[in-house]
Design a binder for these strands. Structure first.
Lengths: 224, 224
DNA sequence: ACCTGAACACCGTTCAAGT
DNA sequence: ACCTGAACACCGTTCAAGT
């Protein structure tokens, strides 16, 4: 596409791949397409990545570069803070956000984040099993919120998103009112997120509240 | 592969596709592969499905055929029951479970389930936005639990799963103890789910407890 | 109604070769 | 050290044709 005006590099390739994912969906992220973007033959990428999986892994890893781990405050506030921080990074590239899930325990930055979160939860009295589950759920919650946001429709790129959403809305609107009164009542919220900040706050709260309830049970049992 | 001993049909194709997904991962589910399984040319499938997306949609829809919607009990017990019921169906085909997410509001059975769940939440005083978010989270929670279960490694088929998990365990075990003491302590839980029932109970509880906490807040505010 | 044959525009990946 | 050319075994999908 564009003529070679710059050398290839892993970070540049990853960045461009993330942009393509957001613009046209992950299906558009192919070795050949990426090569074309850099004005280079497909096989050139194999010098920088062993294979496509390694490219996807690098894309996943990239999210953990910019996650600030909070050190102060009560444990539940810190848990909320990591979850919110994860949401923030993943939101930068919704189309590729799910790639982060498989990489938490497979890159240094992800491991650092995990270690800090684990330490916090263990110190608060959670068992190893609970700790693993809670930390996994925190990441999963962040990824789900970003990926499943109504109106995000992350599997299609930002190019075709509007028509996909419009089609979905039309399909819902055509539903029989007698049978699906509540679905129709919720139609707006199901196809569009009116207040994004509120949406993410709600989702993170739901998770943290659940953990807090569990925490209270754990404390109650240990006192008994 | 096998010679044509039976006619092609949508349900048979879907069933076989789900089996392939579990055995070898979703990447193995291709039009050509599926055709080969039925001893038929790839284009034969295009009589039964408009395209591959429609096949994937039908796979996703299939999960909602067997979800029992509970009618009695307290609202939180019913919410727990739907979530658990979702877990149960999705667990039948972990490799394809994520396909159910995009289809809740796009097939009759999914819509029926949604309508019943929405009605229950609305009757309990949740707003339309809260209702939509909670219902979405219930499904997402179920899917995540199934997909992210330690030792499930759903993206690789059941054939290569063991070596992938072994590799992951080895990588974690090689980590420096000074830097990752808590990760190492949790290693077992991160690579294997010791008690599956407990794992799912924990995950569903975490979600329902979160909703209950929210519910209490809603009630407290409406009284004020 | 249901399936095939041939063809097209894509994939990821190899390997030897160029500079 | 970094990239190319040619080739291979795959994809999904079309369209006209067979029965």
């Amino acid at each position: 596409m564009s003529p070679r005006n710059t050398e290839l590099s892993r970070p540049d390739l990853v960045e461009r791949a993330l942009e393509i994912a957001d613009a046209e969906g992950m299906t558009a992220v192919t070795v050949r397409r990426l090569a074309k973007e850099f004005g280079v033959t497909p096989m050139a990428l194999y010098w920088h990545f062993a294979n496509k999986d390694e490219l996807l892994a690098a894309m996943g890893d990239s999210f953990y570069d910019s996650v600030a781990l909070p050190a102060d405050g009560a444990w539940d506030e810190r848990l909320r803070a990591v979850t919110a921080a994860l949401v923030t990074t993943l939101r930068r590239h919704p189309g590729a956000a799910h790639l982060a899930l498989a990489r938490v325990l497979s890159c240094d930055e992800g491991l650092d984040l995990s270690e800090a979160t684990f330490a916090m939860l263990r110190a608060e009295g959670f068992s190893v099993i609970e700790t693993a589950d809670i930390a996994r759920t925190a990441l999963q919650t962040a990824a789900s919120l970003v990926t499943q946001e109504a109106g995000a429709e992350v599997e299609h790129g930002s190019d075709k998103r509007d028509e996909v959403i419009e089609a979905k809305r039309k399909a819902l609107a055509a539903l029989p009112v007698e049978r699906y009164p509540n679905v129709l009542e919720c139609m707006e919220c199901l196809t569009d997120t009116a207040d994004e900040d509120e949406y993410y706050r709600f989702g993170v709260d739901l998770f943290v509240d659940g953990v807090r309830a569990l925490h209270d049970r754990v404390r109650a049992e240990s006192r008994a």
